[in-house]
C-alpha cells in the first residue's frame, strides 16, 4: 500500500508526478513556469491530463547561481499554499534537500518531500515525520547537491542504490515517518554516468524486489540524450522507451515533464504485464 496526501493506492497502481519548476533556468523548461501565473496554469494543465502528483522545485539540479534557503522558500512556499487552495486533493510534492524549506512547505500544505539529493540534509526526514508526510529516498552516490558526476565508480551501482535508498527509508521509519508514505528512487543521472543509469534501468526489478515502492525520474535526462545522441527537446521517445522498461519492472511513480504520453505508455505496459485490465475488450469476443 502507498499513502500520499489523503489518498491510498494499491500495489498495482501507477502514478504520474508532473514536474513544476519555479526556476529561471531548469534544463528542460528553461524558466517557462518561473512566473507564478504560468506555474499555476501548468498545475491546472497537468491535473487535467491526469497527474496525481505535482513536484514543485525552486532550484535547478545542475550547478549555477547559488539559491539560498530564503530564496528557495520565496519561490515555493506561497506557491504550494496556492496550489493547495486550488486543488485540495492533489498530492503536492516539493523537490528540496533542505529541512528548513521542507518544514515551511509542509506547513503550507505539501504532502511529500522529494529528497532528490539523497539525505544531504539529514534533518529532512525528521520534518517528514513531524508533519506525517511522505518522503522520497534517493541514491546519488558520493554526489553533493547541485554538482555533476565526475568519474564516479561503483562496485555494483544497483547494489549501491538499493543499500543507500533502503538505508535511508529504514532510517526515516525509525525517525517516525509512516512506512506507507516512503518511496525509493535510484535517481538516474544523479551520481551516475550514462552506463550507470542504463544499468539501473535494466535492473530496476531488483529495486522493486525490496518491497519499497520505486519512483523513477527519467524525463528527458542526459542518459537518454547520450543513448540516442539527441539534445534536450528531442528526447521524448527515448524517455518513453526507458519508461516502458521501468514500468515492466514494476516502478510505481513516474516523475515527468510529459504526463499524457507517459500515462499512455505506462498504462499500455501495465496492461501487457497483466496488472491492469484493457479499458475495453470486444475484439474477437463478441
Amino acid at each position: 500500500m502507498l499513502r500520499l496526501g489523503r489518498r491510498t493506492f494499491g500495489d498495482d497502481e501507477t502514478l504520474m508526478m508532473a514536474i513544476v519548476n519555479r526556476t529561471t533556468d531548469s534544463f528542460y523548461d528553461k524558466g517557462a513556469t518561473w512566473q507564478e501565473d504560468a506555474a499555476l496554469e501548468r498545475v491546472r494543465a497537468v491535473v487535467d491530463q491526469g497527474a496525481e502528483i505535482v513536484d514543485i522545485g525552486g532550484i535547478k539540479a545542475a550547478p549555477g547561481v547559488e539559491i539560498s534557503a530564503d530564496e528557495e522558500m520565496r519561490r515555493v512556499v506561497d506557491f504550494v499554499a496556492k496550489v493547495r487552495a486550488e486543488h485540495p486533493d492533489l498530492i503536492i510534492s516539493v523537490d528540496t534537500w533542505r529541512a528548513s524549506v521542507g518544514r515551511a512547505v509542509c506547513a503550507a500544505g505539501a504532502d511529500l518531500l522529494n529528497d532528490a539529493w539523497g539525505g544531504a540534509d539529514p534533518d529532512l526526514a525528521e520534518v517528514a515525520a513531524e508533519f506525517d508526510v511522505g518522503l522520497v529516498c534517493t541514491h546519488v552516490g558520493p554526489q553533493q547537491p547541485r554538482t555533476r558526476p565526475h568519474r564516479v565508480e561503483y562496485a555494483d551501482v544497483v547494489a549501491d542504490a538499493i543499500a543507500t535508498t533502503v538505508g535511508l527509508a529504514e532510517r526515516a521509519v525509525s525517525l517516525g515517518v509512516d512506512r506507507d508514505r516512503i518511496l525509493i528512487d535510484p535517481a538516474h543521472d544523479f551520481g551516475k554516468n550514462t552506463w550507470h543509469s542504463l544499468e539501473v534501468t535494466r535492473r530496476l526489478d531488483e529495486m522493486v524486489a525490496t518491497g519499497w515502492p520505486v519512483l523513477v525520474s527519467l524525463s528527458n535526462k542526459d542518459f537518454v540524450g547520450e543513448s540516442l545522441d539527441l539534445p534536450v527537446g528531442e528526447r521524448l521517445m527515448g524517455t518513453l522507451g526507458a519508461t516502458a522498461i521501468c514500468t515492466w519492472h514494476g516502478a510505481r511513480v513516474f516523475r515527468v515533464h510529459e504526463v499524457t504520453e507517459t500515462r499512455q505508455v505506462v498504462d499500455m505496459v501495465s496492461t501487457i504485464r497483466g496488472v491492469r485490465r484493457p479499458s475495453r475488450a470486444v475484439r474477437g469476443l463478441a
Binding site: 485490465r277 479499458s279 475495453r280 475488450a281 470486444v282 474477437g284 469476443l285 463478441a286
Partner: peptide, 16 residues
C-alpha cells in the same frame, strides 16, 4: 455465449 459475457474477459468497461 459470447466470450465477453465472462467477467474474467471484461475490460475496465464491462461491455457485457
Amino acid at each position: 455465449a459470447p466470450p465477453l459475457l465472462l467477467p474474467e474477459l471484461a475490460g475496465q468497461e464491462d461491455v457485457g
